[in-house]
Design a protein around this nucleic acid. Structure first.
Lengths: 115, 115
DNA sequence: TTATCTTATGAACACTTGTTCAGATATTAA
DNA sequence: TTAATATCTGAACAAGTGTTCATAAGATAA
């Protein structure tokens, strides 16, 4: 008796897949990362930082947003360790935290080209 | 005279980066893709489909959500061409649309391991 | 035809989120 | 100290989003 009434897979396969999609911590971590990357303003920040390390003021001008909003969005990118920063006097310089982030953007752009 | 009052980069560099972050179509397309991937329910769907082609009923049971909600979320994934589908009688079988999507997930997971 | 099964859809609601504004913090210079 | 500069933060509000419920649509079988 199969109370789930599976239509297209075997119970064993079902359990294998379920193990993989039931890891709430992993799902939540992935979700938070994609959430951080899904906002146009934050995407502009990430794309800008792929070219050069930048301070908040220049970053704000580049993406045509206020310094306040830029700072708010950088906070979210920092929380997900998508960007890192270093202080130099009054200024704070931001840059991309690791190369996997750049790869993600590249992969997504390739998907766009093919779809 | 520099009305932008740049702090950390040259005007030429500024314009180069600005060209890259000002392509609204690309930014919007990237944003929509990440938006589609940032919801936990949709992430579960994508992770499940990485193992096997699945019909809506089995997919709903796997991710522990209603069939209605699963269908709603599949619609969004379809719109971004993250998943594709084929009909077979009453059933609709979904699968991952292309390998770049799988790579994106892999890259993000590697980022997670290192951060 | 009618009945059943599978999937899709529209409306409604609660919840989340990006931006703005005002103000705070921190660093440097005078 | 005060003033100026650079960045950050909290509150508030509009706009967007995920889920549920009810129902529709499409396919098959009787």
């Amino acid at each position: 008796m199969n109370e789930l009434n599976l239509h297209s897979i075997e119970p064993g396969t079902f359990e294998d897949i379920q193990d993989h999609v039931s890891d709430d911590e992993v799902i939540s971590a992935l979700s938070n990362l994609f959430k951080a990357l899904c906002d146009p303003t934050r995407l502009r920040i990430v794309l800008a930082l792929q070219h050069s390390e930048l301070c908040v003021h220049d970053l704000a001008n580049l993406i045509r947003s206020s310094e306040s909003n830029t700072s708010h969005q950088l906070r979210i990118l920092r929380a997900e360790k998508i960007v890192k920063y270093r202080k130099e006097g009054k200024q704070v310089f931001y840059s991309i935290a690791d190369h996997h982030i750049t790869h993600v953007i590249t992969d997504i752009q390739e998907h766009l080209r093919e779809s």
